[in-house]
């Protein structure tokens, strides 16, 4: 139960503005989720330079054994980047709570008021080509940094969810039986693990989200991103709100229009609401 925003910048001239734009979008959904907020930024070379991999950690121990690492502290989150393959970096931080990993994405999670957290994350100055954010009103789990979206459980993948799945416990059991490990009790993590398993099996976002619609019962508006994709889908009844806007310079989605109001060229954007069970995917 929450607010969602996402922005994919097609125009490289806007990349320096990503953080500022995402912060204004976050402000537009702050009231929908006053408990906590999470942010993902793709291509922020301040935090994850070219040729590096980055892992985002919660409550990282003070002395991680990663030589040559670039370490950024942002509240509960620590981002560790190093010129290593993702797998090697993950192996080097064994024991820490990993909330994201990849060569593009850096993820920040924390509890508190969303705009305070944006300052903690230094979001306004972030650069990059894609970003998303989620403000949370926790329903059936505790307000913790771990419970924050996005759930990032595959390389450079993110899933944010507004709504409430109705059969997530069963799907969790199936995934666990298949060897998938979970970090939280959150229903949205089940969606993220499901999509990650599909992507790992070679499906694209469109196909993976169609499969999700087949398998998941309940209410959801989902934004799913990866290193090469940006996708939105809603359940068959589509109660939870979503607006998509598109211009030649960017694609954006949000729970409410007011989160899009400050985007450059919004007055000339194509604006629409996603239809039930239809996957809207942009891949490149």
């Amino acid at each position: 139960m929450c607010g969602i925003v996402g922005l994919h910048l097609r125009d490289p001239e806007l990349h320096p503005c990503l953080g500022r734009l995402l912060t204004s979008m976050l402000a537009g959904v702050a009231e929908r989720g006053p408990d906590s907020a999470g942010v993902a930024v793709y291509g922020d070379r301040r935090r994850c330079p070219e040729g590096y991999a980055a892992v985002s950690l919660l409550d990282a121990p003070p002395d991680l054994p990663v030589p040559g690492a670039l370490v950024t502290e942002a509240g509960d989150t620590t981002v560790v980047a190093a010129p290593l393959p993702v797998e090697e970096l993950l192996a080097a931080v064994t024991g820490a709570r990993v909330v994201g990993a990849g060569t593009e994405v850096t993820i920040y999670k924390g509890t508190g008021r969303p705009l305070d957290l944006a300052r903690t994350y230094d979001l306004a100055d972030a650069r990059g080509w894609q970003g998303l954010a989620h403000t949370r009103m926790a329903t059936e789990s505790q307000v913790t940094a771990e419970g924050c979206h996005p759930f990032s459980v595959g390389p450079d993948q993110c899933l944010v969810h507004n709504g409430s799945f109705a059969n997530h416990a069963s799907i969790r059991r199936e995934l666990v039986a298949a060897g998938v490990a979970f970090d939280s009790e959150n229903d949205s993590e089940v969606g993220a693990r499901f999509v990650a398993a599909r992507l790992a099996a070679g499906e694209d976002l469109d196909k993976a989200l169609r499969a999700l619609c087949e398998r998941f019962d309940g209410f959801y508006t989902l934004l799913v991103t990866s290193a090469d994709g940006f996708a939105v889908v809603r359940d068959a009844i589509a109660c939870k709100p979503a607006v998509i806007a598109e211009t030649p310079r960017w694609v954006a989605m949000a729970s409410e229009f007011r989160a899009l109001a400050e985007l450059p060229g919004i007055d000339d954007a194509r604006i629409w609401e996603p239809e039930p069970e239809r996957v809207y995917a942009w891949q490149w």
Partner: peptide, 8 residues
């Protein structure tokens, strides 16, 4: 409306 965010 559906859910607590929209109830607010």
């Amino acid at each position: 409306w559906t859910g607590p965010d929209d109830l607010a």
